[in-house]
Amino acid sequence: MSTDEPLVLGIESSCDETGIALVRGNTLLADAVASSVDEHARFGGVVPEVASRAHLEAVVPMLTRACAEAGHALRDIDAVAVTSGPGLAGALMVGVSAAKALSWALDKPLYGVNHLAAHVCADVLDHGPLPEPTVALLVSGGHTNLLLVRDIAVEVHELGGTVDDAAGEAFDKVARVLNLPYPGGPHIDRVAAEGDPRAIRFPRGLTAGKDMERHRFDFSFSGLKTSVVRWVEACERDGRPVPVADVAASFREAVVDVLTRKAIDACKVHGINDLQIGGGVTANTRLRALAEERCAQAGISLRVPQIRLCTDNGAMVAALGSQMVQRGVSPSSLDLPADSSMPVSQVRAG
């Protein structure tokens, strides 16, 4: 196999997207994604069994689509990479099982990779090799983490994570209170554009003196969400119209203020001048703008991949698998588990 420019197939099935992609070296050749998001909308959140059923239906069609887009046959690939965790157990098992079948049938090495590390690695496809070390901020519906990446294929440390809700989850919950559709992020972003971010001072979780001692790089969005709900209900109880745009803008500002502030702080504390942002919430326009502004002020160089590489996809998984092949990391074994709570310190599963 070519270890400089390996052709790697990546499979992602940790939540509600079935992603299958082909990457050659650091170049994306094809990225097929099927999403079950519409099936979850009426439940107000991802239903694991609904997601797992959809993955099973989507695997073979996405394999077909990815190969057709890339102009490759499955027998051309050099390695198979798959998200082995963290994520929804039943959903992960579908992708992991498919990857094993491919690995055995094609007699090619299998790499079980960490979903969070894969999110960081996605940007390799957009902006080339990662600066290492780099600090990475991952923000999605399921995760909110600050990572210190020393070697993306081998060594990633978790600096902090959410102690309760993920940032994307907070967007969904607040959207519901404001009678905006699911998933909430894009709708809050849209409505907030017309609002005043300073209209209401919502709390910034884990930023006060005492919390900063123990949770300097951790996040909490549950209190913020409750604070928004109480504010909105007080309005409704008093018969005042809810200023939806101001609430959305003020809430969004509270979230992105904490995210960017802690990310910059992590860079400073660790003496690192590179920040990488990824995950579905990166689609938020205010997060991008504030991160750019604060990084520029602090002299930190910021890398943000295009939005389609920020949400869950197979491309990021293939990209990380490709890094592992290029750096001579040994493959996973065929008894690789799906690990719903896989720690990010484990970049490759056993």
Partner: peptide, 19 residues
Amino acid sequence: PFTGLRVGIVTAATLGHTL
């Protein structure tokens, strides 16, 4: 039981497609 059942079915479907 669904979760285990899908492991076998996706494995068979992927093998058939690949081979």
